[in-house]
Design a protein around this nucleic acid. Structure first.
Lengths: 208, 208
DNA sequence: ACGTTTCGCTACGGGGCCGTAGCGTATGAT
DNA sequence: ATCATACGCTACGGCCCCGTAGCGAAACGT
């Protein structure tokens, strides 16, 4: 009975309310001032929740920030249009849009930077990245089954080839990142993979 | 008199010494603890230079950190082997090696994160990125002149297509980043670009 | 209506870092 | 040898943030 009760604890609405307010304020502060600026005191001031209340729900600042980060996890479902190209276009266009418009995208560098040194952030970063890549892997796997990609295709390589250019353009080149760019990436990579130059040169192209 | 003297200031060796010690310590602290950890007090402790001396040469902490960042600028000369593929292989392999081994590479996420919010860091980041890309652009330009790339090739797109996957693998996928990977990227992108980089969407893309 | 839980508020000691001042000492230039 | 300069050291007021304690008030569950 105790285990059953602990499994489905109906939450006190007061807890839920303050918890939501705190997380919202934390995300805002993370975007505006970075991890270092997401102070417990600042979160308390911004959210209207007392500092002591925050400490009643989170042991320390890193726990709170990690919680705020994971509250943003929103992995999209893998599309299934019937064509590999269409699936990839849909995914990369969605990614491009998310990287340019979503305010949450702005704090990905902060997560990567923190992951470079702190194990907890590192684990979270990998979890989120894996969640994003799994959809891509699913789509690519279907492409292989359909014969749109050669059988020996290295899926991991393709993931970097497809997603990498979008990230690079957003945070390094700092140029326009739109549907046209996403389309160009998909087509170039698909065309370049069609003959699988690195893995299986003997079999030539599938049906060229 | 004052203007003439300021025009050619031979540096006091004491200044040069403390300056070098401070910058070295700052870089170390940046790598170990990030920007927030590169405190003037910590730098003073690590370098053995008194805190007051640091303030005599830098007005505040951001100036010091920016100075430390720019002391790491080392853009490689564009190679000229005669073949576009060889040039690109050399450059991307060098980049892959730098991203994996160089301790300075570890603080690129920190720079990108800071650039997201602070204009000074943003300017520095763009300056460094531009320096890296210019060599790549030079090599690609020669490829177009030689006819190894179609005349209308979008060089900016190629830069992201080539460099992006390396960054993505280093900081998102967190998988092996070696010569083999760099080679696969170069070959896929070159093959994919050999015909039109983005074919017409009406027919369903680059089908053969 | 009743106990229980969570809340907001105030206050606190502790710590870290900021940026400056003053002063004697060591190192450099001439 | 002399003068100028940069140095290290100590000390300081100020600020921000940490995490905890104690209290009464308000909101909840039954």
């Amino acid at each position: 009975m105790t285990t059953a009760a602990a499994a489905a604890p109906r939450l006190d609405p007061r807890v839920a309310r303050s918890r939501a307010a705190v997380l919202t304020a934390t995300v805002q502060l993370l975007i505006e001032r970075g991890i270092a600026g997401a102070t417990v005191e600042a979160v308390a001031a911004r959210s209207g929740v007392a500092k002591t209340t925050i400490y009643r729900q989170w042991p320390d600042q890193p726990s709170l920030v990690l919680d705020a980060f994971s509250s943003l996890l929103a992995a999209q479902e893998p599309p299934d249009t019937g064509t590999l190209r269409e699936d990839l276009l849909q995914m990369l266009r969605g990614l491009a849009a998310a990287l340019t418009t979503s305010p949450a995208a702005a704090l990905m560098p902060a997560l990567i930077d923190a992951a470079e040194r702190q194990p907890a952030y590192r684990a979270l970063h990998h979890r989120e990245a894996e969640a994003r890549h799994s959809s891509l892997r699913t789509v690519l796997g279907r492409g292989i089954e359909r014969g749109e990609l050669p059988p020996g295709t290295e899926v991991d390589l393709l993931v970097d080839l497809l997603a990498g250019p979008l990230f690079h353009r957003r945070w390094v080149s700092d140029r326009v990142l739109d549907d046209h760019f996403a389309t160009a990436v998909v087509d170039t990579v698909l065309l370049g993979t069609h003959r699988s130059p690195h893995s299986n040169p003997r079999t030539g192209g599938p049906r060229c």
